Simulated assay, not measured.
Amino acid sequence: MNDLHQHPAGVLWACVEDGFHVGSRDGEFLGYVDRQPDGHYFAFNARAQHLGEFSALHDATTAVLAASESPAPLSGANEDAIGVS
């Protein structure tokens, strides 16, 4: 199950398990796509935040790539305070 797909901009998608695809660029984890029992795909960013549901694998991987290219705000206020007294 090492079905590898090369995409533009040096992005590599690996099918690590049936229906589970992991994206990386230059060794950096971008996120993943998980096929659901109904055939739709859920896309997640590198922080496992749900990006949406898609009917096509290509659309889901495109969403992960787009999320990796735009800075995302931290989801929790405590993340900003780490290390601050």
Rank of each mutant, 00 (worst) to 15 (best):
Y41R: 01
R35L: 08
E69A: 14
A60Y: 03
V33G: 07
R35F: 07
G76V: 01
S75L: 09
Q49R: 14
H58D: 07
D18I: 00
H58Q: 07
A14K: 08
D38K: 04
N78S: 13
V22C: 04
S24N: 14
D18K: 06
G76T: 04
D59P: 02
R47G: 03
F42I: 01
S70T: 15
G31Y: 05
Q36N: 06
A77V: 09
S55I: 06
F29P: 10
G52T: 14
V64K: 02
C15P: 06
A46T: 09
R35M: 14
Y32A: 08
L65Q: 07
G31E: 01
S24M: 14
Y32V: 02
N45T: 15
H50I: 06
H40P: 00
G31L: 04
R47V: 06
N45Q: 04
F44C: 03
F44T: 03
A60V: 09
E17C: 12
A14G: 05
E28D: 15
D59N: 12
A67D: 10
D26W: 06
G19A: 12
N78G: 05
E69F: 13
L51V: 14
T62L: 10
G19L: 05
A67E: 08
S75P: 05
L74Q: 11
F42P: 00
D18W: 05
F42H: 06
A60Q: 00
F44M: 01
A46L: 07
E17F: 03
V16C: 07
H58S: 13
D59I: 01
G76P: 02
F20R: 11
A66F: 14
Q36F: 08
P73K: 08
E79W: 03
A60M: 03
Q36V: 04
S55K: 08
L30S: 10
G27P: 12
L51K: 03
D59C: 05
P71T: 14
F20K: 10
A56K: 12
H21C: 13
H50L: 11
R25T: 03
Y41L: 00
A72W: 00
T61I: 04
E28H: 15
E69Q: 15
G23S: 08
L51M: 03
A43Q: 11
N78W: 12
E53P: 00
G76L: 12
F54W: 09
F20Q: 10
A48Y: 02
P73E: 13
A14W: 06
A48T: 11
L51H: 03
S55N: 07
A63R: 02
N78M: 08
E28C: 15
E17P: 10
S68Y: 07
D59S: 12
F29R: 12
P71I: 12
L30Q: 08
G39P: 06
